[in-house]
Amino acid sequence: MKTDPDFYVGWQDKAPASFARALRWVVITLAILVPLMAGLLVWAQRGFSEAVFEYGQLTTLEGRLIREPVPFLRVPTNKTSAGAPRFERVLLIGYGKHGAEQTIRQWEDRYGALTSKSIRIRGTLIRYQGHTALELTEEAAALQTVANPAIPPARPVLRPLGHVTLQGEITDPKCFLGVMKPGDGRPHRSCAIRCIAGGIPPLLWVQNGRGHANGYVLVGPNGERINTQLLEAVGRGVRVTGRLEQADNWLILYVDGPVETTTLLADVQAQIALCR
């Protein structure tokens, strides 16, 4: 076929000069636009939290198993200046999008009741802003040893902090404290719903205008699990009322009112200050 300077179809090996010129401009434009877009889209992101998930690195912890209202390992850390023991709680979470209960039941099937017993377990640490959780990555094999304390340990002190109303976002502590970035907000909502439906305790994350933030584990008024009732509100702005208790380094909110979805900003500064 003759080359026609004004006509071209793609099965011809070479485009006429006028077509080739136009194409060169398209390629040059794209070559400028593509890196520019990549840079702009990265630069304009809001950023990610400093939360840490020690993926691939297993840590062994020893402490007392606490089952209620949610599973914790109570680990002695150091002593106060007066010589009194000090403890830190590590929230226990199962592998995948599951709570720790199923794994603990497997342990108890093998070792009998473990509540208040001293156990040594291995898992993957997740931590953010003073909150630490341990994923039981190896599931049943995560339990290394079980021991009966020589002296029955004193009952952990729960410090009542009064009746409060808090406003924040309900998410799952596993993703939020480090497994996913971001572990909150709209894109993560379905994942948080799956995690909470799978038994991971819901966490209310509250922020104030001064850059302070704190997390509250949500349970029912009598400490019962309310994961299913909260699913509709996960990943959304909510206002929650309940009785607040401090359990070592964690805050537990015993929800006794309706969980209202809201986009209005509340003055939550007082609650955060109180907890600190």
Binding site: G96, K97, C191, R194, C195, A197, G198
Partner: peptide, 9 residues
């Protein structure tokens, strides 16, 4: 894989 696997459904 990220948001929907390894869950209860």
């Amino acid at each position: 894989l990220q948001f929907h696997t390894r869950g209860d459904v």
